[in-house]
């Protein structure tokens, strides 16, 4: 780990101002991802601003939405009755993430900001455009079992590691931020960006912009949501593929649908075309299979990860069938 200075504050505006003023400063919340990457020298901030004292730790149920403070820990969020009731997919995704110890430290805001598990990104001895723009992507022709089949570019085929973010897609979550230019609300689907030719950019946040909360609107749709994850190990492992799904059925027809996919793209992937294809039709195996087929339209494997394409299709069908039931 490179040396750095440390400071802390209980004021969000002070935190934002301090980080905004210093290109080499970063916010420090749970630290589980940032400190790990600092040990690998993938991250080397000169200043860490500890934001754990900021008043963003609560989870509060309002009339039309539940607000999860950005500093709420993953474990507390997963166990919170309002979250379990309003957005079961989010609670399930959190419980399927990491380990109890990591969930006790890691925060909701930090979960959205966590960086890819791509082995080439994390190994400074290898080529990675995300870590060093222009150096090349060693994963495309390398060991790419974990990598993206959708949304990748010639410069990057990493996958986003968050389970929760995939579930948030299924419940229309909104990310609330405070930055150097004030506050804003960003729909979760618009929060993360695709690599294109700038894989070093992963979200729409500006430097110094701080996540303060994640809001989940209360809806029947969200309350039906579920999260399903496939992995090699039975626990404590990132997803091979995952699905966050929600479905509402009225008069025998699908009235609304949400489909988020994980483990297959550089960002939490919303299968919008599949959602559209589901609306208005009767829930059936055929309809789910068609939605799955549409979801992987344009998908491309790189060798080791080819299996993810049939795998995610099957998981989509399974999870839609389970939410429809």
């Amino acid at each position: 780990m490179r040396p750095f200075a440390y400071t802390r504050t209980a004021s969000s505006s002070a935190a934002v101002a301090t980080v905004t003023a210093d290109r080499d400063a970063k916010f420090l919340a749970g630290g589980t991802n940032l400190i790990d990457l600092m040990k690998d020298t993938v991250e080397a901030p000169a200043l860490l601003v500890d934001i754990n004292a900021l008043p963003f730790g609560d989870i509060v149920e309002h009339r039309t939405f539940v607000r999860i403070g950005a500093l709420a820990r993953m474990s507390d969020t997963a166990d919170h009755p309002a979250v379990v009731r309003i957005a079961p997919a989010v609670a399930e995704a959190l419980l399927a993430s990491a380990s109890p110890q990591l969930r006790n430290a890691a925060t909701i805001g930090g979960n959205l900001m966590q960086r890819t598990r791509c082995a080439y990104f994390r190994d400074v001895a290898t080529a990675c455009n995300k870590r060093e723009p222009g150096r090349g992507c060693a994963a495309i022709d390398g060991i790419n079992r974990q990598h993206a089949v959708l949304g990748g570019s010639r410069d990057c085929i990493c996958v986003h590691p968050s389970d929760m973010a995939v579930a948030l897609l299924a419940v229309d979550a909104i990310v609330r931020t405070r930055g150097p230019r004030g506050e804003r609300s960003i729909p979760i689907a618009a929060f993360h960006t695709l690599p294109g030719d700038t894989p070093q950019i992963e979200t729409v946040l500006e430097h110094g912009e701080l996540i303060v909360a994640v809001d989940i609107p209360i809806s029947r749709l969200a309350s039906t949501s579920t999260y399903v994850k496939v992995r090699d190990r039975a626990s404590y492992e990132f997803a091979l593929v995952s699905v966050g799904a929600a479905l509402s059925v009225r008069d025998g027809k699908i009235a609304d649908a949400r489909l988020g996919l994980g483990g297959i793209a550089p960002k939490p992937w919303r299968a919008l075309a599949s959602e559209r294809a589901l609306i208005g039709v009767a829930p059936s195996a055929a309809a789910f299979e068609r939605a799955a087929e549409i979801a992987v339209g344009g998908a491309r494997g790189y060798g080791h990860n080819d299996f993810k394409i049939p795998l995610v299709k099957r998981l989509i069908v399974k999870s839609l069938a389970s939410v429809a039931a």
Binding site: R8, T32, P100, Q101, L102, N104, A105
Partner: peptide, 24 residues
């Protein structure tokens, strides 16, 4: 943060002590 051998309780909650700074 991949094995749990460093688990300690901080204010009664279990965390991996390897992925947190002492100064925090």
């Amino acid at each position: 943060g991949t094995c749990g051998a460093c688990t300690v309780l901080v204010n009664g909650r279990r965390i991996d002590s390897c992925l947190t700074l002492a100064i925090m």
